[in-house]
Design a protein around this nucleic acid. Structure first.
Lengths: 207, 207
DNA sequence: TAGATTGTTAATCGATTAACAATC
DNA sequence: TAGATTGTTAATCGATTAACAATC
């Protein structure tokens, strides 16, 4: 993937959204879609869609539109989803269970290799097919299984310690579902998902 | 709250972030903070913080900074969090349980009044102190308890139907945790929280 | 007063979108 | 060719931030 211009983060998020809509269209055996139709489905401007695509190449046919399957495959490649990503889950509670279930069900390149928890009751058990280990072994196990990404879904305020272990264990990215703001670290990409901010925003709009 | 200029949605999200950091400072008995210090803690530019505040008023003391308690209270008022918000939860699975637990623990103005599920096993039970009802009664119960906001955390693809019931039941806002894109509706505010987009973004950055 | 930090302006930077030539 | 839709440009719009007067 050669990228000439820098792609804005918001464009990346939209491309992920387009990809999911395309997967839906494909499921319904729709073979061709125009930027206008896709824009409608995604609630965005059609010019924006075409511009977002243009960061990565020319995928359409003038006068016709886009082949759904081809476009989906190109966008997934653009996002790096053509590879398999090895994930570890830190925190095997309700949130972690929900996340793992959902992300695996997407059937994208995501595989959860191991889960970690501090609760002795859970250690040694499985969540679905994912074995649960002690969070004390997070660093060494992360290293051993060569995990790419760590997902933090703990609720005990230890997110920063978990992140440190993950980073020492060699992950290159962290998806953090706790409200703890992680210290930025060189060469480690961190994404923060924050529920309460979204609920607060909603309240603001209703006020 | 008189607002002269339109406040950009990104500013609102940051203000929610500031509020949470301030709550943390307050917990640590820190009474005064400067925009530079808060900026450091939130990973944003200090001028941006001051500009964000300016949408709502003048909360600081030149030469000194901001009183943590006062500022927090002002920001919470700006967001509309000084009122109590009555929430209903649709989907009492792992995700719903995690969300409800977390949002209640924040101890902001959020109260979960009722939860709904389609699973007969769950109906009639409680999640913590929140009673679980049949999703068939979603509309009427929402109406009866005068819920302000519905949180959708189902995983059976019925998000749009749930949203319809919520809207007919009189909620004014919906926080949607499913990947289903809800049809926009007049006078109803919808916020979409999308996990997989964030994970996809992370993969892109690692590629 | 001297030092510090706010509130605000103006400049910069970046993202969105209308419009249209290119082309299937 | 006629009709349609892409890819791209240029204009618009909005958000970020440096700089500094105001002021505690």
């Amino acid at each position: 993937m050669t990228r000439t211009k820098k792609v804005p983060p918001v464009a990346i998020r939209r491309i992920s959204l387009y990809a999911r809509q395309l997967a839906l269209l494909d499921l319904n055996n729709i073979t061709i879609v125009s930027s206008t139709e896709l824009a409608e489905a995604c609630n965005v401007n059609s010019a924006q869609i075409r511009k977002d695509f243009a960061y990565f190449g020319e995928f359409g046919i003038r006068g016709t539109g886009y082949y759904v399957k081809d476009l989906l495959s190109e966008l997934r490649k653009a996002l790096g989803l053509h590879k398999q990503w090895r994930l570890v889950l830190v925190g095997a509670g309700h949130l972690g269970t929900a996340l793992a279930g959902y992300l695996v069900s997407l059937n994208q390149g995501y595989i959860f290799v191991k889960a970690f928890d501090r609760d002795p009751e859970k250690i040694g058990r499985y969540m679905g097919s994912i074995p649960i280990f002690s969070v004390e072994n997070l660093e060494q196990e992360t290293k051993r299984i060569k995990a790419d990404i760590g997902i933090i879904a703990t609720n005990d305020g230890t997110a920063q310690e978990c992140a440190n272990s993950l980073i020492r264990g060699g992950v290159r990215g962290i998806l953090n579902f706790t409200p703890v703001k992680l210290k930025p670290s060189d060469d480690i990409q961190i994404e923060q998902v924050d529920f309460s901010i979204r609920l607060d925003s909603l309240c603001y709009k209703l006020s």
